[in-house]
Nucleic acid binder design. Structure first.
Lengths: 215, 215
DNA sequence: AATTTCACTAAACGTATGTTCAATCAACTG
DNA sequence: CAGTTGATTGAACATACGTTTAGTGAAATT
């Protein structure tokens, strides 16, 4: 008895990288994200994921051949979401480094992007990054391009804003570290994390470094 | 056939918190640290730990009743080492905030303290922190007291050094984030991590914020 | 010398879990 | 409507792993 027959709404069958409809894959990924966040990678089982998705364990391996493939798909999903939000913030600023830095901070703490589950998943993969090089490649590259963007924006602001005395690299690394550090608070405090305070503290740092542009 | 009889050197039997000699416990903890760093928490098994320690799997559960207890002991061990190094750096500075900040940075990237295995273990537990509250308590409290120390030192330097225009909290959080961010490099680059460059970058930030004391 | 204690081994046990597979049902196709 | 395809189930399989336990030998104790 197939409890989940193909509905007309799911007729759009785009098979890429694996079997199954995209909708079902998304449901499984969403369930996996929650299980990983709740139980950690070491306690994540296909049975738990299946139960949370309301399907049988076999269906999970039908859509994701191996457990490893599912976990990697989760990482890619979360990684893509973060990357997209980051890019949108920069693009929306239209070349203005001050607006871009502000938008990056705002995007980082946007509840839609950095909900506690996704943050927990992100840290879970960081925790296994040393053991699985493929994880390290993903999380590392996102981190790297984030720093590269911040460094570019800081350089631009230093040049155009008359902050020639500043060490762009030091300022950018500190900013990247600050943002990540505040981000950790989401992991620690969960839903009670004060996002406005985090944004305020990030801007306080920017106003220390670039006082004439972040008053 | 007991291949590891009690030798005269191990006669000192201090049993605290569990069975066994301290020496054997240390060997097991060292093996566990390496396995966790190499394979991640999700792939760490008692058999691997036992093999690396050159003993049988049963001996591990003899010294650490449960696997959970072993993992927690590993976390405590690494946590204690970090905390001790931090405290030593601050104490050694004798109340001088400039010396203390410099010593903290140096200690953070001291190879004896932050060897790649220990850093990987630290991140591994961070990765499971959302799932296991007891992990979160440990890693979170170390992080908290670290920030508290940095904040105190920054406040002191701001007051005594004539930096009244600076936001102490913003400066301290950025410093904490910067150090952690650079620390991540140990995880990413392993033994090839450039510790001198990291120290240089940390001091570059300090010289941006406190130019008259970190020239 | 006899007895007890401690550290350890090796095998056994039971369970949890990733993966496979035959069967089933719905939807689409011609 | 008959036949094919795709999604799903549920059970079976194999195995990896944490834990238990009986047994062993050396050291300490009496």
């Amino acid at each position: 008895m197939a409890r989940h027959p193909q509905s007309a709404a799911l007729k759009l069958r785009i098979v890429r990288g694996g079997a199954g409809t995209l909708a079902r894959r998304d449901e499984i990924l969403a369930a996996a994200i929650r299980v990983i966040a709740r139980d950690g990678l070491s306690q994540t089982t296909l049975e738990k994921v299946a139960e949370l998705a309301g399907i049988s364990p076999g269906t999970v391996t039908f859509h994701f051949a191996k457990k490893d493939a599912l976990l990697l798909a989760v990482l890619d999903r979360v990684s893509d979401e973060f990357e997209r939000a980051r890019r949108a913030a920069i693009t929306g600023a239209g070349g203005d480094p001050v607006a871009a830095l502000g938008a990056l901070v705002a995007a980082t703490f946007d509840p839609a992007v950095s909900d506690p589950d996704r943050v927990a998943v992100w840290y879970a993969f960081w925790g296994e990054a040393n053991a699985r090089r493929i994880y390290l490649d993903r999380v590392g590259s996102l981190d790297k391009s984030n720093l590269a963007d911040l460094l570019g924006l800081c350089r631009q602001l230093i040049d155009e804003g008359g902050y020639a005395h500043l060490d762009a690299e030091a300022v950018a690394i500190a900013l990247a570290g600050l943002i990540e550090y505040l981000w950790q608070g989401i992991l620690v405090d969960g839903p009670r994390f004060d996002r406005r305070a985090a944004i305020r503290q990030a801007r306080a740092y920017l106003s220390v470094v670039f006082p004439r542009h972040f008053g």
